[in-house]
Nucleic acid binder design. Structure first.
Lengths: 242, 242
DNA sequence: AACTTGCTAATGTATATACAACATAGCAAA
DNA sequence: TTTGCTATGTTGTATATACATTAGCAAGTT
């Protein structure tokens, strides 16, 4: 095993065993280089990688300390619906239900960080997989950042594909819930009877501000969201509900 | 700006602009150290950090190459329900509905990687927030890995808290969907009328195998799942539906 | 044609050193 | 008591160097 890995193991065990609790100081680079008879750069690498993995925190001038326990996060892949369908070797097509310029509802204006009463672009598109509706994409777009949104052909390319080209995005947030569809949504999904729907609300940012807010509604019977995660540092999980 | 950061910027621009497409070779450590008049170690750091961020791939003996585009993932925080409730300064309590040793249903046996007909532990617990039911935790546990599961008091500590202590976990996978609750679930949630529920299926691993499978059912009206992500490298997002 | 050998270039690990930037404690002066 | 300075220790950046390990290619051998 590489020397830096030996040092990592050593510190890792101290933390996992509980011998070093939260905020406990970790031996400095110089101390470690003496203890293990390695150069400071090698000891440094061990500490740095532990810091990247979130097990310790380092502050220049002060030292290295065992990181506080964190609640664990899970990695969920949320992909472009069109790509997902094509990946299953199924046929995708889209129907544009709404494409307009409207005065933003208050909730939308605040979500897009615009003043109340501002005008925004609004699109509603139904996505089909092998002829069955699997998603309503109800989207409001910031016209200042994407002025030519309304002129696009969203049957050819999804709004996402266009937005990705125009605005390099830097952030996104999601809210997932289970809802009963409205009458309007029911008809857009071509569903006979009401059924639970998985609804994802998504807001996206680029450097200059909020780009768009989308509400994605999926029939529960035709959609699932999958995710997988691996823990680098199992001992550090405090309160993940697992 | 630090020298290694200058080099990173340089390569980053080449990739973002499209000048260097997927799999395009990146200047070697030695080339970069000449071009930028820095030591090889400094050029190396730039390439290494780019590799950690997923923009390039490196293979010893061969070289450094622009990484293929990847679909983007979102980071969802899925926390311990008890902690989440307490964080809102609300009151949490749990009611144990089922705690038994049963022959595993086929689906469960295969999920836990046990032979059909094997016996497993089974618990069902309802979690309350300020007196309102917010989650049914229906869990099957591998008895080989957690032999004393049935002897625990899950009113005091959630199954998660116990499992975390006993088995340091290394992996987890999730499946999220919207469903209508069964009659049984309806009564466990003390709901008058059926309403859409957000259902999370979770499987967890430790080093030695599958630890447990849990089905978490939340009334849609009382639960939302939130997540937030930041992109380190916006240009590399290919098909995230954003 | 198939296999082997050896060379070259690239990344991976490790060392020794120097200086910069920052945090903190302790001490001195106001 | 408060303010400000300094000494010391710690992490951050950078350099020059050496050797190990691996991939890919080319020449030679069977």
């Amino acid at each position: 095993m590489a020397k830096f890995a030996v040092i990592k193991e050593h510190i890792y065990r101290k933390i996992e065993s509980g011998e070093w609790p939260e905020y406990h100081p970790v031996s400095s680079e110089n101390e470690l280089s003496e203890q293990f008879s390695v150069s400071r750069m090698t000891a440094r690498r061990a500490l740095q990688e532990l810091a990247e993995e979130g097990l310790v925190t380092r502050t220049r001038g002060s030292g290295t300390f065992v990181a506080p326990l964190k609640s664990q996060s899970a990695l969920l892949t949320i992909r472009n619906i069109a790509d997902e369908i094509r990946m299953r070797n199924h046929k995708h097509h889209a129907v544009v239900r709404v494409l307009e310029r409207v005065v933003a509802p208050n909730a939308v204006a605040s979500a897009l960080q615009l003043s109340p009463g501002a005008e925004v672009f609004h699109s509603v598109i139904t996505h089909f997989e092998n002829g069955h509706a699997v998603q309503i994409e109800d989207r409001y777009v910031n016209p200042n950042l994407v002025p030519q949104y309304l002129e696009q052909d969203f049957v050819e390319h999804t709004p996402h594909e266009y937005l990705c080209e125009v605005t390099p995005l830097t952030e996104a947030s999601h809210l997932i819930e289970a809802v009963l569809p409205t009458e309007q949504q029911l008809s857009w999904l071509a569903l006979e009877n009401p059924e639970p729907c998985l609804q994802i609300q998504r807001r996206t940012w680029c450097r200059d501000g909020v780009v768009s807010q989308a509400t994605l509604t999926h029939p529960g019977s035709r959609f699932r969201l999958g995710g997988h995660m691996t823990f680098k540092a199992p001992a550090r999980v405090s309160n993940a509900e697992v």
